[in-house]
């Protein structure tokens, strides 16, 4: 649920990076954190297990700039991808304004992607959020690895509603900002429609 504060002239929205475990969700946030000025972003908070896997969530507050004098701020969250953290994923999705699905392009992770997309839809349904109306971007990550499924094949399997697709190598930053831009754009356009 976006928060509009006319007195402070700011808008804060929430984007959640969703996807299977070890798919690169945290890597996306780390890249954004490392490549934005400290004046425009807050701390990257990570709640990890000892093995450096996301236990609960990561969150990065980001100021994108201003539109019509309003500060446009986003809170970027990741969910823990491992299957058994379903309850945590549901919690993080509460009040979401946009979702980036980070798919792992490796052939052996195809089923995990599908399972995670189904989990996303199930969790959205539990909140009565309409997936059809949700700003949603599909990121095909790890395109540099040797054993990847072709982008066309992945699109056939994973595109659900004509969402924007970005091919990425998050660890090198390829496609990371583009993904964020696409998601931010969809969120702002949706808010524009709703506030009319």
């Amino acid at each position: 649920m976006a928060l509009l504060n006319p007195r402070l002239r700011e808008l804060i929205s929430k984007i959640v990076y969703y996807g299977p475990g070890l798919g690169g969700k945290t890597t996306n946030l780390k890249y954004i954190f490392d490549h934005t000025s400290p004046t425009t972003r807050g701390e990257l908070i990570t709640l990890n297990t000892e093995g450096d896997r996301t236990l609960y969530f990561d969150v990065l507050p980001l100021n994108l700039g201003t539109i019509k004098g309003y500060k446009i701020r986003f809170q970027l969250y990741t969910v823990p991808g491992q299957v058994f953290y379903s309850e945590s994923r549901k919690i993080i999705l509460r009040g979401v304004d946009g979702v980036v699905f980070v798919a792992d392009s490796q052939a052996e992770r195809l089923d995990a992607n599908i399972e995670s997309i189904e989990d996303l839809q199930e969790n959205l349904r539990e909140y009565d959020y309409s997936f059809a109306d949700l700003p949603y971007v599909l990121q095909l990550n790890k395109r540099d690895l040797p054993n990847v499924v072709s982008a066309d094949e992945m699109k056939k399997l994973l595109i659900l509603k004509g969402e924007p697709v970005v091919e990425s190598i998050a660890i090198r930053g390829v496609g990371v900002m583009e993904t964020l831009k696409q998601a931010a754009k969809l969120v702002l356009i949706k808010l524009k429609k709703e506030m009319r």
Binding site: L4, N5, P6, K190
Partner: peptide, 9 residues
């Protein structure tokens, strides 16, 4: 409604 407006007052 998917947003909250914090009116000045």
């Amino acid at each position: 409604m998917s947003y909250l407006i914090l009116y000045g007052e």
